[in-house]
Nucleic acid binder design. Structure first.
Length: 823
DNA sequence: GCGGATCAC
DNA sequence: TATGGTGATCCGC
């Protein structure tokens, strides 16, 4: 039937086109018809353009896959064995930190939009409408079970009901009794509630018993009227019952059904909320084996974060299910980026976030619009301005200012381009944003000239928002700084370039605090890049794109210079001492000197700390030494170990009969620090110390092993410390000092660890656990994205454990740097 | 920091 | 297969 229909449609369309072509010169054709046909052709053309673009994208993916397969071919058995050991070591760690103590619930409204539409049909209009969004159900229902529940967009939410479950045990029955809302309840609703068989029928394999202590409609109060009992339902105290109760209440309130998943972490909860849709629920009991059973045959595509492309790439490697993902872990660690394969590993072990993270700060805001082909510059600039205006409004609603403006264009062939430009002073108004965006647009228009730029979409985004902390500091510093009137003290000119270059065209609106922006930018640069040796000042204006802002500053300088030719007193932004000079060059020289000096000073300080061994940030060199010792110690065994493993690991990729064996640590590791650096150190240890003992204990098929290890102390590192103790925010170690000065010094030292590293000539410090270069890897997406739970609606469930370390360290760094500067 | 790409909702 | 908008993240430069 449908085939026939398709064929018919297709031939009809062809017919239309054919007729159009044949009838092109047909006299008497109505204008209207012509227009209609043109439109059809247009649509067809658009469609084919779209389709061609899809093909193109598909080709690109295929090329990626090809590249990956070539890379795979080059992998030697040795490499694979080595990788296997490393990954398995990690598996042990991950297993040890597996946390099954939380009960996370994922609620997902069934076919939300369609359902709302259906429900809001005129004939249903009379009924009370309660649903607005998940955040409303927040307030109304979900918060009762978890005050910190996390709405994800309009139709999803996570709850951590661990505490609720404990409390609920003591609740009297009446507190668990709910009444049917006669008005809003259909017979079906009641049947669903009453007929637990309906639920059980479609129950999840990992949790066949959904309502073990369910007591719906049990008439245990004979004195009550039948009427009352008939109209109410009592829910039990188990997790399943709680979730059933939630779903019941949601439906009573909104007339919409919801599905839910219950599991020890967010990843699993989300995945299992999907397995019993619609209007169903599923639980993965908090046991390792239950988790592995659930994952065993689960297609990877069901995993949040694994999309079409990743699925295809993994499929090319013969990976379709999550257990296969585990079996191929060694290979994956060689083919994908660290973030990706670690994510894969987490997935295959069923590890996810066990607590719901608060929303992070928004990272960007954008507006974009699709339209029919637009090809005149005039229209495009005007569209650009319109978008900037809309965006500015939205930004101002949230009081946000960003430093980066990104223009997005999609041409009529559906190719997407983004062009970004960062300015040193944050922008938020229409004019400010447009000033940047129009230049970007202009460049693109120029690039295709004399042809017109033919686009079907334009978007403008602002990102690079100041954190709240930064805003606060900026405010403070600006006011005090402006009072002192010492802007000139920080101006630096880019050497070798005529100042005139900076005075061209742009007319960026001046914003306050430009100096501090620059200083912060430079500091941040240092935070991310250990090679601070370059003059910070020189880097400040190195970026061509910063010129617009520089104009403003330079103008001030020239004005000042013009107005008075006498020597000026200024304050060096590094040493904060007054300097007297009559030229910028002199000032620059001083600043360079100053920067160099502080560098040396800091380094000396650091080295001193290493020597004394008192500072807790000294774990870096000790790790290194430890590794050397360890490696030397194990060296003789390594070869033998590798050989030995060859017999097992060689076929481990396809063989799943090997048993997962709990391995104990061969040596007492130094207490782990939750910092980025300690990760690196650990990684290095992993890389350099292949302990042969483990080779014979390949942890291949953990999917068949039920071992559950108690949580060990490794999970305690992130716990908060006592208030009375100063804890370094960088290395997270307690500082014995009570002096803020020495504490601050320690923080400075920690912040400069990258620099130290370089200065101490430990350049070959490995940062990857794998021995394959990153550049060779197949770039891949990952739920590493999901490790941050960010803004409403776009967040991804995820881990806050291993993956986020670098990100956190980074953000902590950037925040610290500005504090440090104002110290 | 930029640009392309992937993913979620 | 013909959705578009918003936001996030990753990877390679």
């Amino acid at each position: 039937m449908s085939d026939t229909k398709k064929a018919c449609n297709s031939s009809c369309n062809d017919g239309v086109l054919l007729r159009m072509g044949l009838n092109d010169n047909k006299a008497g054709m109505q204008g209207l018809d012509k227009e209609k046909i043109n439109k059809i052709i247009m649509e067809a053309t658009k469609g084919s353009r779209f389709y061609e673009n899809e093909l193109k994208k598909d080709k690109q993916v295929n090329q990626r896959i090809e590249k990956m397969m070539q890379l795979k071919e080059k992998i030697t058995t040795q490499q694979l064995l080595k990788a296997q050991l490393q990954v398995d070591k990690l598996v042990v760690e991950l297993e040890q930190s597996r946390n099954l103590s939380n009960t996370i619930v994922h609620i997902d409204m069934d076919a939300f939009y369609a359902a709302v539409e259906m429900r809001d049909k005129p004939e249903l209009k009379e009924k009370p409408i309660a649903v607005g969004s998940m955040s409303m159900l927040v307030r109304e229902i979900l918060a009762e079970y978890d005050p910190n529940f996390m709405p994800m967009g309009l139709d999803e939410a996570y709850l951590n009901i661990t505490e609720h479950l404990e409390e609920r045990l003591n609740w009297p029955e009446n507190r668990r009794r709910f009444f049917f809302n006669r008005e809003g309840t259909t017979e079906n609703d009641k049947n669903d509630i009453n007929m637990s068989a309906k639920f059980n029928e479609s129950g999840c394999s990992s949790s066949p018993v959904l309502f073990e202590d369910s007591t719906p409609l049990i008439n245990d109060h004979p004195e009550q009227s039948d009427q009352l009992v008939e109209n109410s339902v009592v829910f039990g105290t188990s997790a399943e019952e709680v979730v059933k109760e939630i779903r019941f209440r949601i439906e009573q309130k909104t007339q919409l059904t919801a599905s839910a998943g219950i599991a020890p972490n967010t990843l699993l909860a989300k995945m299992c909320s999907d397995c019993n849709k619609p209007n169903g629920q599923c639980r993965i009991v908090p046991e390792r084996q239950a988790i592995l059973d659930f994952l065993k045959d689960l297609p990877i595509r069901k995993v949040p974060g694994i999309g079409k492309v990743t699925e295809k790439m993994l499929k090319a490697l013969g990976i379709v299910t999550c257990s296969e993902l585990y079996q191929q872990r060694a290979l994956l660690s060689l083919l994908f980026s660290e973030a990706s394969w670690r994510n894969f590993l987490d997935i295959s072990l069923g590890l996810g976030s066990t607590h719901l993270e608060k929303d992070g700060e928004r990272k960007s805001m954008s507006t974009e619009r699709t339209f029919s082909e637009m090809n005149t510059a005039e229209d495009q600039y005007s569209m650009c301005r319109e978008l900037c205006r809309d965006l500015a409004q939205d930004l101002q609603k949230e009081g946000l200012k960003g430093k980066t403006v990104t223009l997005k264009l999609k041409n009529v062939s559906f190719e997407v381009k983004t062009r970004a430009s960062s300015v040193l002073s944050s922008v938020s108004t229409e004019e400010e944003i447009f000033a940047v965006a129009k230049d970007l647009l202009g460049t693109e228009i120029d690039s295709v000239a004399p042809h017109p730029l033919r686009i079907r979409l334009m978007g403008v985004r602002v990102s690079g928002f100041l954190s709240e902390e930064e805003r606060k500091y900026q405010q403070k510093s600006i006011t005090s700084f402006l009072k002192s009137g010492k802007e000139i003290g920080v101006l630096r000119l880019q050497p070798g370039k005529s100042n005139k270059d900076y005075f061209r065209n742009k007319s960026e609106a001046s914003t306050t605090g430009s100096f501090f922006d620059k200083k912060r930018a430079a500091r941040q640069l240092n935070g991310e890049n250990p090679s601070l040796n370059k003059s910070v000042g020189k880097q400040l204006f190195h970026d061509r794109k910063s010129s617009a802002n520089f104009v403003e500053e330079t103008k001030k300088v020239t004005d000042l210079q013009d107005s008075s030719d006498v020597r000026k007193i200024f304050t060096c932004p590094v040493c904060f001492e007054d300097q007297s000079s009559n030229s910028l060059e002199e000032l620059n020289r001083h600043i360079d000197l100053c920067l160099g000096w502080t560098l040396v000073k800091d380094t000396m300080e650091i080295n001193k700390n290493y020597d004394s061994g008192e500072n807790t940030c000294n774990f870096l060199p000790q790790y290194k030494n430890e590794n050397v010792d360890e490696c030397q110690k194990n060296k003789p065994d390594q070869l033998a170990g590798a050989d030995q493993s060859a017999s097992t690991s060689g076929n481990s990729v396809s063989n799943s009969t090997e048993k997962f064996t709990q391995m104990t640590s061969d040596k007492p590791h130094r207490e782990r620090q939750p910092s980025n650096l300690s990760d690196i150190a650990r990684n290095m240890c992993m890389k350099q110390c292949l302990l042969p003992k483990r080779i014979s204990q390949d942890s291949q098929d953990h999917f068949e092993k039920t071992e559950h290890t108690e949580e060990n102390s490794s999970s305690c590192f992130f716990e908060s410390k006592e208030d009375s103790v100063l804890v370094c925010p960088v290395c997270n170690s307690e500082q014995k000092t009570t002096s803020l000065v020495s504490f601050n010094r320690h923080v400075d030292v920690c912040l400069n660890k990258g620099l130290i590293q370089e200065l101490t000539e430990k350049k070959d410090f490995p940062t990857k656990t794998s021995n394959m270069e990153n550049s060779n890897r197949v770039g891949a997406l990952s739920r590493g994205q999901q490790c941050t739970n960010t803004s409403q609606g776009t967040k991804r469930s995820g881990l806050t454990t291993s993956q986020s370390a670098s990100k956190k360290a980074k953000s902590s760094n950037s925040k610290r740097t500005i504090e440090m500067f104002f110290k």
